[in-house]
């Protein structure tokens, strides 16, 4: 059975786990190709113009896969842990997927209601009737769930030429969206740290203001922000236009950053965002960071 895995949204978080899990179950995993203009164009034509960029891209990936596979594996993240919800669009995209491609391919969409494991075990029975094989597949794939992207040079604390790039994994992980931002910072001599490189126990903290945030990934973003607040040279917050949770949480972050006078750059992206515009803004931001590090006299003479 050829089973499609759209390279969008939760793929950037659980992708390796899903690939391993499905392969263990004997399915032939077909990944959609990396996001490009064509996939975006297909997505744009399929969904309403008001939803955020990652959703449009996800729709494009689904349509792309629908032509070449027997089934699409597209789990629905509803809530996890302490009733922390995914965002409404992420919950709803599975229904949109059913409307878009449901009549052409089978959609395997386990619902994750707090329990990651049982949802996947249940989905496993779509492939095989052997419970032993399903549990073996889960056991083998489980190790892929761990956050393995923690770089050792960040473990001891970050350097002062590091910028915290706060954004969703499906935005920063997708080269089509995030690559320009990351490479521009690197080119300007700044190292970046994203929330993926921060240990899980810090991301899932529920004290302080983060307690009030009931969206899983937003809480992680806010915790990452708070953790990095006194460590990095500045923050670049990447928000997709029309993202509901981010429009609030970015505001809370801006407030905190202003209070401590930490430089803060808010990048709002959508399908019309040009690369040149992003680069210019980041370069201007980097210029600001460099100025702040100079001694006062040098700052004045640099003018």
């Amino acid at each position: 059975m050829r089973i499609g895995l759209p390279r969008a949204l939760l793929y950037y978080r659980y992708g390796r786990f899903w690939e391993c899990f499905l392969a263990e179950l004997g399915a032939e995993v077909v990944l959609s190709r990396k996001t490009d203009e064509e996939i975006l164009a297909r997505g744009l034509a399929a969904v309403s113009s008001e939803v955020c960029l990652p959703i449009k891209i996800a729709a494009g990936h689904l349509l792309e896969l629908a032509d070449s596979v027997d089934a699409i594996f597209f789990p629905r993240m509803n809530w996890l842990g302490d009733k922390l919800f995914a965002c409404p669009k992420m919950i709803g995209i599975v229904d949109v997927a059913a409307m878009l491609v449901g009549n052409r391919v089978k959609l395997i969409a386990p619902i994750i209601n707090g329990n990651f494991m049982s949802a996947h075990l249940k989905a496993g029975f779509e492939f095989t009737r052997d419970p032993f094989r399903v549990s073996q597949a889960w056991k083998k794939a489980k190790s892929e769930l761990k956050n393995t992207s923690i770089r050792s040079d960040h473990a001891q604390g970050v350097r002062d030429s590091t910028v915290g790039v706060i954004g969703h994994f499906y935005n920063l992980g997708d080269d089509f969206i995030g690559r320009t931002i990351i490479t521009t910072f690197r080119r300007c001599g700044y190292d970046i740290i994203t929330k993926e490189e921060i240990p899980d126990d810090i991301l899932s903290r529920d004290n302080g203001f983060a307690k009030n945030i009931r969206w899983i990934y937003e809480r992680e973003l806010y915790n990452a922000f708070e953790y990095l607040l006194n460590q990095v040279a500045g923050f670049c917050v990447v928000v997709s236009m029309g993202c509901g949770p981010d429009s609030l949480v970015a505001e809370f972050m801006r407030e905190q950053a202003q209070k401590r006078s930490v430089p803060f750059l808010l990048l709002v992206i959508d399908e019309h965002t040009g690369e040149a515009g992003l680069v210019t803004r980041i370069e201007a931001f980097v210029e600001l960071l460099k100025r702040r590090k100079m001694p006062r006299l040098a700052r004045m003479t640099a003018l």
């Binding site: 309403s48 008001e50 709803g92 229904d95 949109v96 409307m99």
Partner: peptide, 16 residues
């Protein structure tokens, strides 16, 4: 309202 999250999902359903 513009960028309302749930209603945008509902809109997809309404169109179909």
């Amino acid at each position: 309202p513009f960028t309302c999250m749930p209603e945008n999902i509902a809109l997809e359903a309404l169109q179909r």
